[in-house]
Design a protein around this nucleic acid. Structure first.
Lengths: 210, 210
DNA sequence: CAGCTAAGTGGACAGCATGTCCACTTGCTG
DNA sequence: CAGCAAGTGGACATGCTGTCCACTTAGCTG
């Protein structure tokens, strides 16, 4: 098992809550450089092509220093992404309707969730693509959160577990990029997803008469 | 631009339809070995981890020989996958209802398509995972076919282009693998997808009263 | 303010996969 | 059976990964 590290600082997590030595000034400066350089590189081209070497060079530090904090490209992207995802998660847990828990109609709440995710994707696809492509994505903490949320929203259906992954699939960053590359606007994507949400959660979906 | 090669034989495609020299016996034997070895390797572990070197070694040929026909792992997986996908495509174009063109209800035809794709996934996830993970998948000829099919089925909706990618997303091999790893049976996945198909295509989905 | 120590740094290194190249071998045809 | 194009396979150059360790430096302590 690899040692757990804090997402933002990249420092080892104190498992026992013991006081952790303060981050040194030079380390903090370099960390900031790394994040800034990485953000820029991810935005500039295909995030999947960005290497640890690129980031180290762009940040003006050595490879060893970079690896000291971040074991791979994905962890850097996640650090950059973290606060944005947290903000949305907070909205869902504590915010106002239609996103928050006081919304009564699951279809509308799912629709709002989809819309919020599209906004997140629109602003940060490059980070999401840099973070985890393919299978690794599903092992992320963030995915777990979205999964649980959708599973709860579909609780009235016979098989929420199977539905949840199905309903989250269209939010995969690769899909979003493809749609945007085809000049499909965020609003059109939101509408398509709303159709999905309402179609699945609004009474319909019963098997037609045999 | 890379030179186009035939999916099955890996030989250069004659752009002008000129007669192509017959494949030599030793070449044919090695091609068979490559495909057999690759099939086995893909099935054995994580297809994404299989390297060209592994395949060459398992097939008992040199790396140069392997690269002569197949430029990368994905093209080998596609060669193995090709006939299976073609069979399904044929069913869709010429087969009987509910998969074929004589099916009148788009919801039922989409449901049948989903079910057929789940069968394909169940049998060949390892090949699909070996073929193209992430973005490359959408540049495949096969994906284009599925896309067109779904776009036609959703033609009555205001935005079939946006919907098509959305509805295809849950069929991504990574999603399927994740669901199966969670012990969700193919049947449950088919049902979830049927919910989707019928929800979106059966009248529902209208915005609720304001 | 000087000395100490652990945190921090960066480049060297070994490992591994890729993709190309080319001298050699072999199947096929005439 | 001779000639040649197709086919073969391993060597090579390249690029990225992740680790390691000798050196540097920030910041505490007396």
């Amino acid at each position: 098992m690899t040692k757990r590290t804090d997402l933002l600082t990249g420092l080892p997590v104190a498992e026992d809550g013991a006081a952790r030595p303060r981050e040194r000034a030079d380390a903090a400066r370099n960390r900031a450089r790394v994040l800034a350089a990485a953000e820029e590189l991810f935005a500039a081209g295909d995030p999947a092509e960005v290497t640890m070497e690129d980031i180290a060079k762009a940040a003006g530090i050595g490879r060893g220093t970079l690896y000291r904090r971040y074991p791979d490209r994905a962890s850097i992207a996640r650090a950059l992404l973290d606060e944005h995802e947290r903000a949305l998660q907070h909205e869902i847990l504590r915010g106002a309707p239609p996103l928050g828990p006081d919304e009564d109609d699951p279809a509308e709440r799912l629709t709002a969730f989809y819309a919020a995710m599209v906004d997140l994707l629109e602003r940060h696809v490059h980070l999401l693509l840099g973070a985890e492509t393919g299978s690794a994505r599903y092992r992320t903490g963030a995915y777990g959160f979205w999964y649980t949320h959708v599973r709860v929203l579909t609780a009235d259906h016979p098989d929420p577990e199977a539905l949840a992954d199905t309903l989250l699939a269209p939010l995969a960053p690769e899909i979003y990029r493809r749609q945007r590359e085809q000049d499909i606007s965020p609003d059109r994507i939101k509408n398509a997803l709303a159709t999905l949400a309402r179609g699945v959660l609004t009474g319909g979906g019963a098997k037609p008469p045999e």
